[in-house]
């Protein structure tokens, strides 16, 4: 019967996640999406020219909007705006406490937020369009050594298992009379840890022992030359998007350093 609980949770959660197959970003290889967000995250640090950053912001926002998850996008941007408000308050307090420090100008205030928004756009695309199975495939294609690949694969394998466990623990607590909501967590942080994490850690330790033994009995980790049953090559669209990313980053740096007017 435990399986039935699982089925219900998964079907229920599946209904909450719209199918993304039609959107082009969902069909991109996980390695391509990794390269895009990694190169963008590296680029935003040295960039300080507002027009260069504005170009990246526009293109990355279009990339995010292409997956048509407008509600999540809106929530993320509202959160960012909230942080922006906190920053104004914080800057005001700092300039009040330390009058010698530079005051707030539009450029100095807005640049860090543009950087965060760019990162948010590329990260959200990855997070929303990636599926656990795709992550495992992506991980395999990175050709990592055994001692990194095995725990990383186990980590990905266990994330959905723990999500399911947490749901069961929360349900069990709810029928006992403990509803883990924000107010409860803030009023009883240590008690929350005991209620939620003790069962989870014990489950983790027991599962790890059992899975470790099973892996050993199946001969995992015996040889260096692991074969690859499924070989996934980057597709045309992956190469096109990667080239486009490089071109846009080149334009942004060109604007900053005066090569492009």
């Amino acid at each position: 019967m435990r399986a039935s609980y699982v089925t219900n949770y998964t079907t229920e959660s599946a209904t909450k996640t719209p199918v993304l197959k039609k959107e082009f970003a969902a069909n991109l290889d996980v390695r391509a999406k990794m390269l895009i967000s990694f190169s963008v995250s590296l680029a935003v640090i040295p960039l300080y020219h507002i027009e260069a950053l504005a170009i990246l912001l526009t293109v990355s926002l279009a990339y995010l909007l292409s997956i048509r998850r407008f509600w999540i996008t809106l929530v993320a941007y509202i959160t960012l705006a909230f942080l922006c408000g906190l920053a104004i308050l914080s800057s005001f307090m700092v300039s009040h406490l330390f009058p010698n420090m530079k005051g707030l100008t539009l450029a100095t205030f807005i640049l860090p937020f543009i950087r965060i928004a760019i990162l948010l756009n590329v990260i959200l695309v990855m997070a929303i369009t990636s599926r656990v199975q795709g992550m495992l495939q992506g991980l395999k294609s990175l050709r990592l050594p055994y001692f990194i690949y095995l725990p990383a694969a186990v980590m990905i394998r266990f994330i959905p298992v723990f999500i399911k466990d947490v749901s069961q623990i929360k349900d069990s607590l709810k029928t006992k009379g403990y509803d883990i909501r924000p107010v409860f967590v803030c009023l009883h942080p240590f008690f929350t840890v005991r209620l939620l994490f003790v069962p989870l850690v014990i489950r983790a330790l027991r599962s790890a022992d059992e899975l470790g033994i099973a892996a050993e009995l199946k001969g995992v980790g015996l040889r260096d030359n692991i074969s690859h049953y499924r070989k996934k090559q980057l597709g045309k669209s992956d190469y096109v998007v990667l080239l486009l990313t490089l071109a846009i980053l080149a334009v942004a740096f060109g604007i900053q350093y005066g090569f492009v007017s």
Partner: peptide, 28 residues
């Protein structure tokens, strides 16, 4: 590294990652 040690590290990495997420959600 024995497979069983690597499995423990993998399982705990998942648990640590998920716990941060869980607390963020449960804690509002």
């Amino acid at each position: 590294w024995q497979p069983r040690e690597l499995v423990v590290i993998g399982v705990f990495s998942a648990l640590i990652k998920l716990s941060s997420l869980l607390i963020a959600i449960a804690g509002g």
